[in-house]
Write a protein that binds this DNA or RNA. Structure first.
Length: 719
DNA sequence: AGCACGCCGACT
DNA sequence: GTCGGCGTGCTC
């Protein structure tokens, strides 16, 4: 943003000398020794509201409460609610004097006349900066997120408030620009309910919608920007969270085209810490009222929020990987409700959670007519896996003949996208005949085989299934591997020697590619957008079997989501756009792709999960850790009182972490054998479950009872 | 988690 | 009489 350059230098003249020294030290570099704050022992305390209630910045669950400190008179002015402070913490009293105790950071949450603490209050050591970053609204949001995820407030605050940077704080934010005028509906006119949704935003009411975006490269970004601009025009703030920097940049560009510079900021990691903090401050100070960003932006303190939007809620990157691992969709839902803002969930596909929002009546569907969909969608055809082409080059690439012919013809007209499975994306056990994932007859968890010829065991409840029989087709044989996908991708180049081949995925993701004939081999989610806005002439989706074969609950939804993502970049069928999906055409996600009906697919999935008692119809929490820690935490939770109808599944041994994959919270350290138990409760008991688990955890940590287990509410990979 | 406090045994 | 083992419990 060019706004970052418009800042004026600091006005140091107003600062007291003590602070100047501190500033110099901070600016000089990280290695410089920290100024030692004075002790304030015996100093005068503030005359009015001499007590500061402080949130101590330590993520320990059993310290999840506030601590009171005395406010020295010299800090009275700056020690306002929301500011960052340093306090002495963890020391006892020796010879009647307060001693030692490490200096740690915290936030003032309240100024009070008195404390309910009976001992002598320690004074605040230092006000780090007078910027009130943890506003009451943000604090309340963090509290409810912490509660929902059985985490500590300090952990969530750490996710919500970016680390301090001295320079941006000392610069003024630009003056807020007046509200823009409302934009035209643009692409929203293609949706029967589109204009009405915008009108509701303009009327400052709080519409909630699950938006099934029409295919086409980039249209969605403009529509999202228009929804945000309409909200701004009504005098309220807007926030959109996107799965990656690439998608966020597109909405940023669309908003800039609509409103010019200065009315919104882009909050992504790519900007670098200092510009990012500067932009965050501009939002916090109310200078900017619209935010486009990646998941950390879900906490952005937008003033008078009028719209909370999320794009592609099925993308795994919307799930925070730091404790307590909140999901952007859930956080934005929470904000929409408490801040009385509109909620917009948009995607090309549809998650079961989104379907449930519609099913429960919380949100209304925002989708185009069948006719409109048919007019812009590509032609979708299936190719059988065994139906390999006669051409030897195509054979070596294991391309079905239809895929081979389609690609060859389309390459006359433009670029062709080839979607191949991501490495490590290998299914577990499925029926050899109909490819139905093998599930436990007791709890419907995924069946696993420890090795060749070993007995089948459930990945959830550990019960053994000695004689498996497919419930769908009666088959008795299982299959569990996928052909070398990586090699298939490489061999594609040999199948089409006359055409340039480019790859996108893993470390090297392309944002866009030239619109001329070429083969683009990409892993799901890394598909580049063809330049010129025309789209791909064709797409080959070769990863069907790998995607659909996973026993993951989301396998179908995820396969469809990834296919739709790629197919959305293909030209309409009227312009010759064709998609070939190599998968069995009788499978439900394949059918949904052919009909371009993600919402219908998600509704059917939801109905099925409802029967089986799966999330999101039920709520789950995963408890992982060393076996004795898991057992003890579950026992403690039982004692603390699990909600009615709670069901404990397992524990079962956790599979060893694949080498190379980064270890997250809840993953075992290398070499340790951990276990996982799942606790399942009816919908509506989620809050009670989180509270119980947290109580059990706090009890165990306080008494330091052996190794610690990790709690994950709404685990993603439950089988 | 740190870290101090305290209660009991072994030492100068 | 005093030092220090580590078990117990608090951190404003």
């Amino acid at each position: 943003m060019s706004r970052d350059d418009e800042q004026r230098g600091e006005q140091a003249g107003a600062q007291p000398p003590e602070q100047l020294a501190l500033i110099r030290e901070t600016v000089r570099g990280r290695k410089a020794p920290k100024a030692k704050p004075r002790t304030w022992r015996g100093a005068d305390m503030a005359a009015r509201l001499p007590v500061a209630r402080v949130l101590v910045d330590k993520g320990l669950v059993h310290l999840d409460r506030y601590f009171d400190y005395a406010v020295p008179a010299a800090m009275d002015e700056e020690a306002q609610p929301g500011v960052r402070v340093r306090v002495r913490f963890g020391a006892g009293e020796r010879e009647g004097r307060r001693e030692g105790g490490g200096l740690i950071n915290g936030f003032i949450v309240e100024r009070r006349a008195d404390s309910d603490f009976t001992g002598r209050l320690a004074p605040l050591a230092q006000v780090l900066s007078p910027e009130p970053v943890l506003t009451p609204e943000l604090l309340q949001l963090c509290r409810s997120v912490a509660d929902r995820y059985a985490g500590s407030l300090a952990d969530v605050v750490q996710l919500a408030v970016p680390p301090r940077r001295a320079k941006p704080e000392k610069q003024p934010s630009p003056r807020p620009l007046p509200a823009p005028s409302a934009p035209a509906p643009g692409g929203w006119a293609r949706y029967p309910q589109g204009p009405a949704f915008l009108q509701a935003l303009a009327d400052k009411s709080a519409p909630r919608a699950v938006w099934t975006a029409l295919p086409g490269p980039g249209g969605w970004a403009d529509e999202l920007a228009r929804a945000m601009a309409t909200t701004l025009a009504a005098g309220r703030g807007a926030l959109a969270v996107l799965p990656d920097g690439k998608a966020a940049a597109r909405v940023d560009a669309a908003l800039t085209a609509l409103l010019g510079e200065g009315r919104h900021v882009l909050l992504t990691a790519e900007a670098g810490p200092e510009p990012r903090y500067r932009r965050w401050l501009a939002v916090s100070r109310g200078a900017v009222r619209a935010v486009v960003g990646t998941r950390a932006a879900m906490f952005a303190p937008v003033r008078r929020l009028g719209l909370a939007a999320i794009w592609e809620d099925g993308d795994a990157s919307h799930s925070e990987d730091r404790a307590p691992q909140p999901h952007a969709r859930e956080v934005l839902l929470q904000r929409a409700v408490t801040e009385q803002a509109a909620f917009l969930l948009g995607a090309h596909g549809c998650t079961v959670e989104a379907a449930q929002l519609v099913d429960s009546g919380f949100a209304l569907p925002l989708a185009a007519d069948r006719e409109t969909v048919r007019a812009v969608m590509p032609r979708v055809r299936t190719a059988a896996e065994g139906d390999e082409a006669r051409d030897p080059a195509a054979r070596s690439a294991r391309l079905p003949s239809l895929a081979w012919r389609t690609a060859r013809d389309a390459l006359e007209r433009g670029p062709v996208l080839v979607q191949v499975p991501r490495r490590g994306y290998v299914p577990r056990l499925v029926c050899e005949r109909c490819r139905e994932p093998a599930r436990c007859t007791h709890c419907a968890g995924p069946l696993e085989a420890a090795g060749e010829g070993t007995v089948l065991r459930c990945g959830w409840c550990a019960r053994e299934t000695p004689a498996w029989r497919c419930p769908m087709c009666g088959g008795i044989r299982l299959r569990g591997s996928v052909f070398g996908a990586r090699r298939t991708a490489e061999e594609l180049g040999r199948a089409f020697p006359a055409v340039p081949v480019r790859t996108s995925g893993g470390e090297h993701v392309l944002g866009s590619v030239p619109g001329r004939p070429s083969l683009i081999v990409a892993t799901p989610g890394a598909e580049p957008v063809p330049e010129g806005g025309e789209g791909y002439a064709a797409a080959l989706l070769l990863d069907g079997w790998a995607l659909l074969g996973r026993p993951d609950l989301r396998a179908g939804e995820e396969a469809l989501r990834r296919w739709l993502g790629a197919a959305s970049l293909v030209r309409p069928q009227g312009e010759g756009g064709t998609v070939i999906v190599v998968a069995d055409e009788t499978m439900r996600p394949v059918q949904a792709l052919i009909r371009w009906d993600p919402a219908g697919h998600a509704m059917r999935e939801l109905a099925e999960r409802s029967e089986l008692g799966f999330p999101p119809v039920s709520r789950m929490a995963a408890v992982t850790g060393p076996p004795e820690a898991v057992a003890a935490l579950i026992a403690a939770a039982r004692e603390a009182g699990l909600p009615e109808h709670a069901q404990v599944l397992g524990p079962v041994p956790l599979p060893v972490l694949e080498p190379g994959r980064p270890r997250g919270p809840g993953d075992p350290p290398p070499g340790e054998q951990w276990e996982r138990a799942l606790v399942r409760v009816p919908r509506g008991s989620g809050a009670a479950l989180a509270a119980t688990l947290k109580t059990a955890q706090v009890g165990r940590l306080t008494r330091r009872e052996g190794p610690v287990a990790h709690i994950r509410v709404d685990p993603l990979d439950i089988g």
